[in-house]
């Protein structure tokens, strides 16, 4: 007998229905934490804003980009950078919950086990929507212009949000494996740093030495940035977007099961 006994008087749901309901409950709980501790979101927003200003006004003049202005070239890179570094919060949050014994508490409840990870990554996706919208506003203020249309711009946003979501699952795995939140943070940074900076996010690949181009040209940040750039600034889109989606879905297909397995094993 595997039917789940619902307490009498409780609304009846299918198993999937409960999983969704549990995931939403955990999502709400995590978003509430972000609202109660706005400094978490504010600090993760200030840094990319400073990047926008520094690259726009300090380095921008020295960086030559093919056609168009540097700020237009820059913003898609900043968007992707923002969601990539934002994904670290997923791992840090899980490591904190683990350290405080909250995950242990969840494990004793009759809830769907996948809801803890699903709710955390969903909350971080929603937070990313907020942060990226803010970044876009800052971009528009400093002269960023979309060359395509609002539809393409939104598709570009979806492509990079999916990338951030896939990375969230990767850092969920890191957070569940780390002994504490500080280690989760410290582990994530050296992984992301080369991916974000040895990429087309801030400068054209052609300006890099050949060996670095070989790496930078074939890693997901560059692929995602190029797709987003094509969607927002123009140029052929089908191939780069498909490549970006393939990377994100591939990372998701790899990390989500690994993170769930790790969660099951964490005792």
């Amino acid at each position: 007998m595997t039917t789940t006994a619902a307490p009498t008087g409780a609304p009846r749901h299918s198993r999937l229905g409960w999983t969704v309901s549990d995931t939403l409950a955990i999502t709400g709980r995590n978003l509430l934490t972000y609202v109660r501790l706005p400094q978490l979101v504010i600090f993760s927003t200030i840094q990319p804003i400073m990047f926008v200003l520094v690259f726009r006004y300090v380095f921008g003049g020295a960086i030559a980009t093919p056609g168009g202005s540097y700020v237009d070239y820059l913003m898609p890179g900043i968007f992707v950078q923002t969601v990539a570094f934002g994904a670290i919060a997923t791992g840090v949050g899980l490591a904190e919950d683990l350290g405080k014994g909250l995950i242990e508490r969840f494990r004793s409840l009759p809830m769907a086990p996948s809801a803890v990870l699903g709710g955390r990554t969903t909350a971080d996706l929603i937070r990313n929507v907020f942060v990226v919208s803010l970044m876009a506003a800052v971009g528009f203020l400093v002269g960023f212009r979309v060359h395509t249309g609002p539809g393409s711009f939104l598709v570009g946003m979806l492509v990079l949000l999916l990338f951030g979501y896939a990375l969230s699952w990767g850092f969920a795995l890191v957070g569940l494996s780390a002994p504490n939140a500080e280690t989760a943070q410290a582990t994530a940074f050296p992984v992301l740093f080369p991916l974000v900076f040895a990429s087309s996010a801030f400068v054209p690949l052609e300006t890099m030495p050949g060996w670095l181009q070989a790496f930078a040209g074939n890693q997901p940040v560059t692929v995602t940035v190029d797709a987003v750039r094509a969607l927002m600034l123009g140029g052929p889109v089908v191939a780069p977007v498909l490549e970006a989606l393939a990377w994100s879905l591939g990372l998701l297909a790899l990390f989500a099961p690994l993170a769930v397995r790790r969660y099951r094993r964490t005792q």
Binding site: P7, G9, A25, P110
Partner: peptide, 12 residues
């Protein structure tokens, strides 16, 4: 939160 995760229904 625990009420929701133990499937009590919002009102209960």
């Amino acid at each position: 939160l625990i009420g929701r995760l133990t499937h009590l229904g919002r009102g209960t």
